[in-house]
């Protein structure tokens, strides 16, 4: 019984959602009953129109003209990589190398602007397919003051980040959902590793590979070095994102909502 208040909140939420859904349904049925005038196709932005052309010539053969996939390649409108992409930031690095083992060729010659246009086209398509969802402002239910306290306190965000430094104006360029994704799971960064050999010699560099048996790195001179782990004294890995990973099981949803509410004030 002590859980009752939560339940009431949930029910309120349900009614709110139902209200939105019903309104949407009414609009749809009104549209369906309207005379044959077909609604104009969603106008794409100039970038999306450009992207449509590039997509058509470079990608549609495998992913289909509508990006919904074919037998050869997946539906990009359900692709986590596309969802997480913002203006080409995920697509760009991905297209550069492709995924040859899965038959996805590399497109190293695409200019960054072209990648951004493809990104705009794919996001426009996702919007067409998934219909109108709640605006991202619906995510802003948290308390910015509590978010600031979390930033400086329990979240220990201020250990590495600053509102006037790396995060200055972050909300001006990043939407709430992308912002949430960014702090929940930031894009991968190079990992540094230090290997101590039995002789006591230390080898440091950027981690290339690490499993139970092998560690491989590129050292400061750009040389690739690989070692069997049972012939090393120690392998110390410094993952710059470890703090973010460790937070995942620690967050309450309120922490996330509050933190977002705070971060969106950094305009």
């Amino acid at each position: 019984m002590k859980k009752q208040p939560e339940l009431i909140t949930s029910r309120k939420l349900l009614f709110a959602c139902l209200g939105i859904c019903m309104t949407a349904a009414l609009i749809r049925s009104a549209a369906a009953q309207a005379p044959a005038a077909t609604p104009p196709p969603t106008p794409y932005s100039a970038a999306a129109e450009q992207g449509k052309g590039i997509f058509s010539s470079s990608c549609s053969f495998c992913h289909g003209s509508q990006a919904t996939g074919t037998e050869q390649a997946p539906n990009l409108l359900r692709s986590p990589l596309v969802f997480q992409d913002h203006n080409g930031d995920s697509l760009g690095p991905f297209l550069k190398d492709g995924r040859p083992t899965l038959g996805m060729p590399a497109f190293p010659t695409l200019a960054p602007e072209q990648v951004q246009d493809i990104s705009a086209f794919l996001h426009a398509r996702i919007q067409e397919i998934r219909g109108t969802r709640l605006p991202e402002t619906a995510m802003l239910v948290g308390d910015p003051k509590a978010g600031l306290a979390y930033f400086n306190g329990a979240g220990k965000c201020s250990t590495c980040h600053s509102a006037t430094g790396d995060l200055a104006h972050i909300a001006a360029k990043t939407q709430p959902l992308a912002l949430t994704t960014l702090f929940l799971t930031p894009p991968a960064k190079p990992i540094q590793v230090t290997v101590v050999l039995p002789s006591g010699q230390t080898v440091s560099g950027q981690l290339e590979y690490l499993d139970e048996f092998t560690v491989a790195l590129v050292d400061a001179d750009g040389a690739y070095r690989t070692f069997p782990r049972d012939r090393t004294k120690s392998v110390d890995v410094v993952d710059p994102l470890i703090a973010h990973k460790k937070l995942l099981p620690m967050y309450t949803d309120k922490d996330i909502h509050d933190l977002l509410a705070y971060l969106v004030t950094l305009k």
Partner: peptide, 15 residues
């Protein structure tokens, strides 16, 4: 694994 389940926006977060 972790995912963020939201009905807002078009993105999707999955670790």
């Amino acid at each position: 694994t972790w995912a963020y389940f939201t009905t807002s926006g078009y993105g999707r977060f999955r670790s």
